[in-house]
Design a protein around this nucleic acid. Structure first.
Lengths: 184, 184
DNA sequence: TTGAATTTTCAGTAATTATTGAAAATTCTA
DNA sequence: TAGAATTTTCAATAATTACTGAAAATTCAA
C-alpha cells in the first residue's frame, strides 16, 4: 500500500469496518482513500495507492456508485474515469441512511405486510402475527419519522441534533407530568 | 425446517437479513424463531425446529447473548437452558442501536481521535486530517445526540417520533426565515 | 472505419467464514 | 463423588465470498 502512514491507518480501518457495513474490505478501502483525497482519482491511481488489482477496483467502483457514495467525473482532455467522494459529510450521512433503508428496511416491511395479510393456520401462526404486527408498527413508525427528518436540510438537521438535550428535557418533563400518554 | 409456512417465511427472511446486519444466517434464524415464539425455547427445540446442528445453536446463542438480543431463563424442575427474546420492540430497538454503536461507531471515533492528534508529515496527511476532522465532528455530534435520545423512555421516544412531522415544520420554517444559522 | 486507450466481464482460484460431529468440559443429582 | 444430562469447544470440511489475470467489450480520436 502506497500511502503516508496516517492515511494508511485510516484506509485500513475503513477496510475492516467495511465488512460490518455490508461491503468488502477493498470497497471500504477505496472509499476511505477517495474520502481523504484532495482531488478525484482514476482507477490506476487507486490501484497504485492501494495495491489491488485493476479488476477489483473496477468492481469496487461499481458498488460504491450503487451506494451513491462516489461520483464519476471527467477531467478536461483526459478520457479516463475519475471518481470523487462527495465532500459534505451530512449529505454522505443521508445517502448512507437512505441506502440502508432501501436495502434493509423496505424488504422487511414488505415481508411483514404480506405476512400480516395471511390468515393464520394455527395457534403458532396466530401468535407469530401478533409479534410481527408489533415489529411492523415500530419499523413503520421509525421509518416514517426517518422520512421526515430526512427531508430536512443539513443545517436544520444539525440544529436538530444540537437541540437533542433540550428535546429530551421538554419531552421527558412532559412525560413525567402526564404519565406517558399519546401527544407531546 | 419444522415450522408453519408463515413462520418459516419470517425465519428465512431474517436469516437472509442477518448477513446484512453482521450476523450469519443461522443466528438470524434463531433470533427470528425466538422473537415469534410464545415461550422460551431450549437448544434442542431450536435444533428440531430449524434443522441445524446442536453446536451451531450453541454458538448462535452465545452470539445473540453478546448482542443482548436474547436472555437465558430457567424453567422450574428443568436443568436445560431456555432462551427468550425480550418482548418490548422499543427495548430491542434500543439494544440494537447501542450495540451497533459500541461495535462500529466507537472504534471509528477512537481511530479518528488518534489520527487527529498526529502531526501531519506532508500535504497529503494535512489534507486528510481536515477531512477526518469533518467526519469526526459529525460522528461525534450524531453520537451525542443518540446518547440523549437513547435515555428517553420508550413512550417518550415513541412520542418524539410521532412528533417528527411537527419538528420538521417548526425547524424547517425557522430555517427558512433565518437563512440557516446556528441556533434553533 | 481502424486501432489505441480504457473499462468491464468472467472463469478460475484464493481467502474467509459457516457448519458439523465428536470429544471434552461442566453441571447437577442421586 | 459417580455418572447422567447438558453445554461447549474445536479440528475438519463445506459453503460462500473475494480477488485476480486474461480476454472481451466499449469508447474515442485520427
Amino acid at each position: 500500500m502506497n500511502l503516508s502512514p496516517l492515511n494508511e491507518r485510516f484506509v485500513l480501518h475503513f477496510g475492516e469496518m467495511g465488512s460490518r457495513w455490508g461491503v468488502n474490505r477493498t470497497v471500504g478501502q477505496i472509499y476511505a482513500l477517495l474520502f481523504i483525497s484532495p482531488k478525484p482519482l482514476n482507477a490506476d491511481e487507486i490501484v497504485e495507492q492501494l495495491g489491488m488489482s485493476r479488476s477489483n477496483v473496477s468492481m469496487g467502483m461499481k458498488e460504491l456508485q450503487a451506494w451513491r457514495l462516489v461520483k464519476l467525473v471527467h477531467l478536461p482532455g483526459d478520457r479516463r474515469d475519475y471518481f470523487e467522494a462527495p465532500k459534505d459529510v451530512w449529505e454522505i450521512f443521508r445517502t448512507l441512511a437512505e441506502e440502508k433503508r432501501r436495502r434493509e428496511i423496505e424488504p422487511t416491511l414488505t415481508l411483514l405486510r404480506d405476512a400480516l395479510l395471511d390468515t393464520p393456520a394455527n395457534e403458532a401462526e396466530r401468535h407469530a402475527q401478533v409479534r410481527m404486527r408489533e415489529m411492523y408498527d415500530l419499523v413503520e413508525l421509525a421509518s416514517g419519522w426517518f422520512d421526515e427528518v430526512h427531508r430536512l436540510s443539513p443545517e436544520t438537521l444539525e440544529n436538530l441534533m444540537k437541540l437533542g438535550a433540550k428535546v429530551q428535557k421538554v419531552l421527558g418533563f412532559a412525560d413525567k407530568l402526564r404519565g406517558n400518554k399519546d401527544d407531546a
